[in-house]
Each structure stands twice: as structure tokens, then as C-alpha cells.
Design a binder for these strands. Structure first.
Ligand SMILES: [Mn+2]
Ligand SMILES: [Mn+2]
Ligand SMILES: [Mn+2]
Ligand SMILES: [Mn+2]
Lengths: 220, 220
DNA sequence: TTTCAAATTTAGGTTTGGCTAAAAATAAAT
DNA sequence: ATTTATTTTTAGCCAAACCTAAATTTGAAA
């Protein structure tokens, strides 16, 4: 069976919102995620149910099926491989890749993805630190915590960002935070949860709790 | 104004069939070229006329406008740049690239094409020897003749193929003809137009007139 | 000049993926 | 146990891009 571009986008949104199939997802949440109206989502859910990529019970939520998960992961794999290509080979900044990858992820050609993967040297993570599923849909996830949940004096390495918006990524560029940076929590303000961190043993940085909650750290 | 994928494909077909805007094109020819029914073509021609990318007079032919030409050349540029990428970087064979390039040519991102062009070192020709229009739509065409029209003892270099079908390209691979090969016409059979050529001063090759007519040569 | 075959267009229908407005179901609050 | 607010679905439309079948136009042949 072949999915349309719209169906691929819905499935990807559902996969993300359900946290990989764990949580149940609401019609309104999907509508917000992909910028459509709830009425359109209802319609599509019926169709996805008929194609058996989700299990859909009207008025109650939906579950993504194993088949659906495979399709979603395939699209995510393509999205992230293209993001790596754009950054590594075409010198895109990490805040410029998302829109283009949203288009490229729908190109149909197994050979293309296989060759691209090899050309990029089988990368395991995309420019935002997100893991790239292998061709069978297996994801190697690393244990990671939100920076705002770390305690004073704890150390680690920035491995990913939760928010991939251009605004957030450019802010990180400006203050000198990047994937791979070694960090240490120097201070935490009780009142608002903001914190002071040391980056690469030389630069100190103040950030709000909101910013910190979008930075994911591998603790050491 | 933004064109849909279908509109881009129609415009590209019209550009090719009209030989770059020179000849007039028929509804049936377009239908054959893009595998649709004449009725669908009529419908689309009306729309393209309204968008003023062609000048359309019902029952009489159509002319592609300057605007239309610019769009067509933009799509052709993207198609050919992607073909170069697939062959040079991802090790696709020259008979494997067309279908994928048909999809990639519709990705919308001026930055992507600009970077891709630079990454490929501003190539002037695609893997089939066709010229790549520059970002302004200017095409640098070389004078070239069909191999079947050359006379005995004339020499030259294969610079392009007219037929880019996988079947034809694989045939050329098999017999050892390729873009860049130096050739000399050794003999021509009066009866059926078939000919014997010398490739790279070492290998002789017999081919039908039909095959020869799809090989384009820069004479020397 | 009439006739006729081929090319082309129009009419009417389908699928996909949207939309708005209205109806229905669920869940929360009295 | 009702009422009410929220969520979700249904009903009815629309546009794009195709289709088949029926009309129309054109141009060539009789
Ligand atoms: Mn992305
Ligand atoms: Mn990413
Ligand atoms: Mn091609
Ligand atoms: Mn080509």
C-alpha cells in the first residue's frame, strides 16, 4: 500500500504527539500540530483507520498500529537524513533545514535513501540531536534529561534540543550553546527556575527555565 | 505566482515539445507526452492560459510566453542539477536518475538549488549531455549533429543522447558508448543507414540508423 | 461544396484534502 | 439528574487534477 503526502504527514504528527505510540492523541491536538481544522482531521482519521495504520474509535482517541509506526518511522528517517545532508554537505544552518526536509521526506525512492545514508556515512543523529531510525525502523535512543531538571554541580553534554524552531536555534547560536557542548550547572534560582551554567569549562551562561527545558542533556 | 506540480510538468512538456517555444504544440501531443487524456489537457491549457504562462487559442495551438519559458527552464534546471547530484555524488547509473529527478525537480527552495549548484561545482551539462540553464534561464547550447547524419571518415565526440530511456542507456553502456567518447565513422550502409564507427581509436562498433539517430555528436 | 474523420473541447463525474456551519456526543458542573 | 461547555463528528461545499462519453470544430477528401 502507498500513502499520500498528506497521510504521511498525519502519521508523522500522530507518532510524535503519541510519543511513539505510547499516549493517546486528540483530534484537536492533531489539528493544531499540522495547522488544519478539527473537521478535516476527523475525516482523515476515518481514512487512516480504514487503511489500518491507526485504530480509531469515534469520540475516543486513536492508537497508531505497528504498520502505522513503520510508515511514520520511515518518513522520520528520511526527514532526518535529509537534514544531515543539508547541514553537512550543503552548509545549511541547523535552523534552515526543517522546511526543506518537510518536502524532501516525501520523495519516493528506496535506492535514493539507501545511497544517501551511505554517502553521509550512516549518521545516527540529525543536526538537532534526534536519533535517525534505521531502515527497519529501529531507533537507538539515549537516556537524556531536560537541563532545567538538573541539580547544581551536575555535569553533562548537550545532546539534543526539544524545540527545533528557527527562533530558538538562532538564540542558542547567539549564546554559544550547541550540540556536543560540555556543561555544568553552576547555580539555580529557586524563584523562577532560571539557571547559570558553565559551557566548555570557559563560558558562563544565564538562561530561563523555559529555555533550559528545551535543551536535552546526557548526564555524566 | 506559484505553480502546482502538475502545472510545472505541463509547462516542461510544452517547452520540450515546442523545441523551446519555436514550434506550436498540439493537445494530443501533450497528452501523449505526460500520459493523460486529451480532455484533461484541454482543461489544463485553459488554466495555464489564465495564468498567462501560455497564449492559448481554442482549437488552434498554443504558444509558451516568456514568463512560461522562465518557469519551464527553472524546472529543467532543477531536474538536471539533481541528475548530476545523483550520478556524481550518490553513484547512480545514468539510466537510474530520471524518475527520481522527476520528483526532486518540484522541491521549492531557491537556497537549496543555489547551494546544490555550488556543491556540484556549477556543472554545465547533465549526465545525458543536456545543458543546464543558469539561474536566469540562459542555456549554453553546443552545435551538435545526429550520428546517423555524419559521413564516412568524419570524426567527433559524443556529447549527448536524445533518448534518455533506461533501455537505450543500458544498451550504450553494454556496447561501450558514452558521453565524451571520441568517434570516427568508418562505414555507412547505403541500404538501411546502419553504420560502423570507431570508438576511442580502438574499438569498432556496428549500430542501426535508429540507434545512431539518438546519439548527438560535436564534430571536429 | 458538401461530407466526414480526426482533433479538440465540453459536460458531467470521481478522488483527495481542504473548509464552514450545524449536529451530536462526551465530560464537567451544578 | 440536569444543564452546560467542550470536543468531535457530520453535512454540505470547494478546488485541483484526473476520467469517460458526448458534442463541437477543423481541415481534408470526395
Ligand atoms: Mn525537522
Ligand atoms: Mn531535526
Ligand atoms: Mn531526466
Ligand atoms: Mn537528463
Amino acid at each position: 500500500m502507498d500513502l499520500t503526502v498528506a497521510e504521511e504527514n498525519y502519521l508523522k504528527a500522530i507518532y510524535h504527539l503519541s510519543d511513539g505510540g505510547k499516549k493517546s492523541v486528540s483530534t484537536n491536538d492533531i489539528a493544531a500540530e499540522i495547522n488544519t481544522k478539527p473537521a478535516s482531521v476527523s475525516d482523515m482519521l476515518r481514512k487512516l483507520g480504514e487503511k489500518e495504520v491507526i485504530e480509531y474509535r469515534k469520540y475516543y482517541g486513536l492508537q497508531i498500529t505497528e504498520t502505522g509506526k513503520r510508515y511514520a518511522l520511515q518518513t522520520i528517517r528520511k526527514h532526518r537524513l535529509w537534514e544531515v545532508f543539508l547541514v553537512e554537505k550543503l552548509n545549511f544552518a541547523w535552523d534552515e533545514v526543517h522546511e526543506v526536509a518537510e518536502q524532501l521526506e516525501h520523495i519516493q525512492s528506496p535506492l535514493l535513501i539507501q545511497r544517501l545514508d551511505a554517502y553521509l556515512n550512516f549518521p545516527k543523529f540529525d543536526p538537532h540531536g534526534d536519533p535517525i531510525p534505521d531502515e527497519f525502523g529501529d531507533v537507538r535512543s539515549r537516556p537524556r534529561v531536560q537541563l532545567n531538571e538538573m541539580d547544581v554541580d551536575q555535569t553533562g553534554q548537550i545532546v539534543a534540543v526539544k524545540d527545533s524552531s528557527a527562533a530558538f536555534l538562532r538564540y542558542l547560536d547567539k549564546v554559544g550553546a550547541y550540540i556536543g557542548a560540555r556543561i555544568k550547572v553552576l547555580d539555580k534560582v529557586e524563584f523562577d527556575g532560571s539557571l547559570e551554567i558553565l559551557v566548555d569549562q570557559k563560558k558562563t551562561l544565564f538562561m530561563s527555565k523555559d529555555v533550559a527545558s528545551n535543551i536535552l542533556v546526557l548526564q555524566s
